[in-house]
C-alpha cells in the first residue's frame, strides 16, 4: 500500500473519531476541542489534495475564528441554561442512528457505483505550477470567473456583521452593561477625561459642566457613557471643551459640538 493512502487512512481515522467525539461528548467545551481536532485534520486532507490555500483558510477561519467564537459564547451562556446530557431523547437517538446508517449506505452505494467521471478541467498540476502555485491559480479563478460572487460575499459578510451586532444588543438600549464599563475611561466624563485634557492639567479639575448646569435636554450622543454622571451638553458655554475635543478626534466627539 502506498504511503499516501496510509497517511490518508490515519488522518481519516482521527477525523471520524474526533467528529464522533463532538457528538457524544458531555461537556460542550470538549465538543469544541474535538471539533478543532477534526477541522485541522480536514485541513490536512486539503493539503493532500493540493489545496494549500484552502487548508490555511480552513485553519484560520474555522479553528481560529469560528471555534473561538463558539467558546466565547459557551462562556457567556449561563451554565445553568445548558441542557443535561443524560436527559437526551432516546427515540430521537435511535431514529438518528437509523437514518444515519441508511444515508451512509445510500451515499456509499452512490460513490461505488458511479460511472460518470466528468470532463477533465485545465487545472492540471503542471498548469498550476506554471502560474506559481495553488494560491495564484485560485486567485486568478476567483478574480476572473467568480468576480461577481466574490463581491456579493463581501456584502454578505457586511450584513452578517450588522445582523450579529443588532441581535447581540441588549433589548433596551438604556440597560447598557454598566458594570463592565465602570472602570473604563470615559472621555465624556468630567473625571475620566485625562486623555482629553491638555498636558499639565490635573485630571480632577472639571472642565466639562456636570449636571448642576441647568439643562433640560440631555446630549443626543450621551448614551455612549451609560452612567448617571453624564455630561449634559445643554446651552452652557462649552467652547473650551469643544475646542479641546476637536483637536483630538473629531468623529468620536461630534455629538458634543452639535448643540451650540
Amino acid at each position: 500500500m502506498p504511503w499516501d493512502v496510509l497517511i490518508f487512512y490515519l488522518i481519516a481515522a482521527v477525523c471520524v473519531l474526533s467528529a464522533a467525539g463532538v457528538v457524544v461528548a458531555r461537556n460542550p467545551v470538549h465538543s469544541a476541542i474535538f471539533l478543532v481536532l477534526c477541522f485541522v485534520n480536514i485541513a490536512a486532507t486539503f493539503v493532500m489534495m493540493g489545496a494549500e490555500f484552502l487548508a490555511v483558510v480552513q485553519v484560520i477561519v474555522y479553528t481560529g475564528a469560528i471555534l473561538v467564537l463558539v467558546l466565547f459564547v459557551l462562556m457567556l451562556v449561563n451554565p445553568d441554561d445548558l441542557p443535561e446530557f443524560h436527559a437526551a431523547r432516546p427515540v430521537q437517538r435511535y431514529v438518528g442512528l437509523l437514518l444515519g446508517a441508511i444515508l451512509l449506505l445510500e451515499v456509499g452505494a452512490a460513490i461505488v457505483t458511479r460511472s460518470v467521471s466528468g470532463e477533465q478541467g485545465t487545472a492540471t498540476p503542471d498548469n498550476i505550477a506554471a502560474v506559481g502555485g495553488n494560491t495564484q491559480a485560485l486567485g486568478r479563478v476567483l478574480y476572473s470567473d467568480y468576480l461577481l460572487a466574490f463581491e456579493v460575499v463581501s456584502l454578505v459578510l457586511l450584513v452578517g456583521v450588522v445582523g450579529a451586532i443588532v441581535l447581540a444588543l441588549p433589548e433596551r438600549l438604556g440597560e447598557r452593561p454598566s458594570v463592565a464599563r465602570r472602570g473604563s475611561i470615559s472621555l465624556s466624563h468630567p473625571r475620566g477625561v485625562d486623555a482629553a485634557l491638555p498636558e499639565g492639567r490635573p485630571a480632577g479639575e472639571t472642565l466639562i459642566p456636570t449636571r448642576h448646569s441647568t439643562s433640560p435636554t440631555r446630549a443626543s450622543g450621551a448614551v455612549a457613557t451609560g452612567n448617571d454622571r453624564e455630561v449634559s451638553a445643554g446651552p452652557t458655554p462649552t467652547g473650551v471643551v469643544r475646542d479641546l475635543v476637536m483637536t483630538r478626534d473629531a468623529d468620536a466627539f461630534g455629538h458634543m459640538g452639535d448643540k451650540r
Binding site: A12, A19, V23, G96
Partner: peptide, 15 residues
C-alpha cells in the same frame, strides 16, 4: 460522507 452523517446524527440527537 462519514463526516456529514456524523454531523447529521449530532443535529438529530443532541439538545
Amino acid at each position: 460522507a462519514a463526516l456529514f452523517i456524523i454531523g447529521m446524527m449530532g443535529v438529530l440527537t443532541r439538545r
